[in-house]
């Protein structure tokens, strides 16, 4: 992947809204045909970055280029080759599924018939409901319709702003399968998501927080580069476990991770740490104690980077 020439280049992008610095000197490059995920919590600057790329916003400083095109000066050409699916549902709820699709096809100077093959996989799933008003669709179907509309003009680059937010787990999975098939057709995809577990679906991910890109790397590489070793702890007294683990000497990070607690240590004798922790917890009347070393996920990496910011 990395050997391919850069197709999209973000160069030192900054953008602020009043006092809020939405983006600070963001630079990154994408190869053609890549599926890049922008991952970070709300307010990390994902939407702003994607809007600057789609020429909807002007950066305060820095430049974005797509091939030879600059998103500021060549915005008309950019808008023809980029498909954009905004974060909010952006279709007309009072038009039917079919009417929405026809409308978006027409304003991009194409027709549904002409490009039906592009969206057959997706549109096929919602076609039985084509006479239904878009406002009456379920969340997952709305997303599929919005994706169909964004793809109808055969864009070379597809930009999706949090497409899976507010969509059920099954539809989210299906959605990623669809994106992969889009990528197979040679479309470069930029997708933002607040869900860390979706990172693995991307070729590379850019972890973002507070307007900065902390790292741009393949998900597996990010996980392999996790500093130190990660342990998962679980007992029958989860309620007070967090506070007690935080009080443990040598501890580096402790954070709740769903049903369990993930933690890292400053100690170098990491192989001995498991029995030490078990004793420590036994003294404090915990039972059913399980401590095990685990492979870090993207979220662990993200959280550890938030504590010690790295240079992107």
């Amino acid at each position: 992947m990395k050997t391919l020439p850069a197709f999209i280049r973000f160069n030192q992008i900054s953008k602020h809204f009043g006092e809020v610095k939405a983006l600070q000197y963001v630079s990154l490059e994408l190869a053609e045909g890549e599926l890049m995920g922008f991952i970070g919590p709300d307010g990390a600057g994902k939407t702003t970055l994607l809007r600057i790329f789609t020429s909807l916003m002007l950066p305060d400083s820095g430049s974005v280029t797509l091939g030879e095109l600059d998103v500021v000066t060549d915005y008309k050409k950019i808008r023809q080759i980029v498909g954009y699916m905004p974060g909010r549902f952006s279709l007309y709820p009072d038009l039917t599924v079919e009417e929405n699709l026809h409308f978006y096809a027409r304003i991009f100077n194409t027709s549904l018939k002409q490009n039906y093959h592009l969206i057959r996989d997706i549109y096929g799933q919602i076609e039985p409901f084509k006479k239904r008003r878009a406002g009456d669709l379920s969340g997952g179907m709305k997303q599929k319709l919005a994706l169909s509309c964004a793809l109808i003009h055969h864009p070379r680059v597809l930009v999706l702003d949090e497409p899976t937010t507010g969509v059920d787990a099954v539809s989210r999975m299906e959605f990623w399968v669809l994106l992969k098939s889009m990528q197979q057709q040679g479309i470069t995809i930029l997708v933002s998501t607040p869900y860390m577990d979706e990172a693995a679906q991307c070729d590379r991910v850019a972890l973002m927080d507070h307007g900065k890109v902390m790292v741009v790397e393949r998900p597996s590489v990010i996980e392999d580069n996790y500093p130190g070793q990660l342990f998962s702890v679980k007992t029958n007294q989860m309620y007070r476990l967090l506070a007690e683990l935080e009080a443990y000497p040598e501890v580096k990070h402790v954070f709740r991770f769903g049903e369990v607690i993930h933690m890292t240590f400053n100690s170098s004798k990491e192989e001995e740490i498991v029995p030490l922790i078990k004793d420590y917890l036994k003294q404090r009347n915990h039972e059913q104690i399980s401590v095990s070393r685990i492979k870090p996920g993207i979220e662990d990496c993200f959280l550890s980077m938030m504590e010690t910011p790295q240079k992107a």
């Binding site: 909807l56 808008r79 909010r88 952006s90 279709l91 007309y92 709820p93 304003i107 100077n109």
Partner: peptide, 14 residues
């Protein structure tokens, strides 16, 4: 308000 303007703006419509 509905955000559809965003979609219209990214289209080639002037």
């Amino acid at each position: 308000e509905m955000g559809t303007m965003e979609a219209l703006l990214v289209s080639p419509l002037n």
